[in-house]
Simulated scan of single mutants.
Amino acid sequence: MSHPHRYSEFEIAAIYRAMRERRDMRHFRPDPVDPDVLARLLEAAHLAPSVGLMQPWRFIRITDPGRRRAIHALAQRERGRTAEALGERGQEFMRLKVEGILECGELLVAALMDGREKHIFGRRTLPEMDLASVACAIQNLWLAARAEGLGMGWVSLFDPEALARLLAIPVGGKPVAILCLGHVDAFYPRPMLEQEGWKQGRPWREFLFENTWHETTVLPVMENHDDV
Rank of each mutant, 00 (worst) to 15 (best):
H3N: 15
P4Y: 13
Y7I: 08
S8F: 05
S8L: 04
E11D: 10
I12P: 00
Y16Q: 11
A18L: 04
A18S: 10
R20S: 06
R22A: 12
R22C: 05
R23W: 06
D24V: 08
M25E: 02
M25G: 01
F28T: 01
P30C: 13
P30K: 03
P32R: 02
V33Y: 05
D34G: 03
A39R: 14
L41E: 00
L41Q: 09
A44T: 09
A45N: 13
H46V: 06
V51L: 10
V51M: 01
G52M: 03
Q55Y: 12
R58C: 03
F59P: 02
I62L: 00
R68Q: 03
R68D: 14
R68C: 04
R69H: 10
A70Q: 10
A73S: 09
A73Q: 09
L74Q: 11
L74V: 12
E78P: 04
E78L: 07
G80I: 03
A83K: 04
A83Y: 02
A83Q: 07
E84S: 11
L86G: 12
L86C: 08
G87C: 11
E88F: 02
Q91R: 09
M94Y: 14
R95E: 15
L96M: 13
V98Q: 01
E99P: 00
G100P: 02
I101L: 05
I101T: 06
C104K: 03
G105S: 10
E106A: 06
E106H: 05
V109D: 02
M113Q: 12
R123C: 08
T125C: 02
P127E: 06
S133R: 00
V134D: 05
V134T: 06
A135I: 07
C136A: 15
I138R: 04
Q139D: 05
Q139P: 04
A145R: 04
A145S: 08
R146C: 01
G149E: 12
L157T: 06
A164W: 01
A164S: 15
A164K: 03
P170T: 15
P170V: 09
K174Y: 09
V176R: 04
A177V: 05
V184C: 00
V184W: 03
A186V: 04
F187A: 01
P189E: 07
G197E: 11
K199Q: 14
K199R: 15
K199C: 10
K199P: 01
Q200D: 14
P203N: 12
W204K: 06
W204M: 08
E206K: 04
L208Y: 08
N211Q: 14
T212S: 07
T212D: 11
W213V: 08
H214T: 15
H214S: 11
V218L: 13
V218D: 14
L219D: 10
P220D: 14
M222V: 15
H225T: 15
D226K: 13
D227H: 11
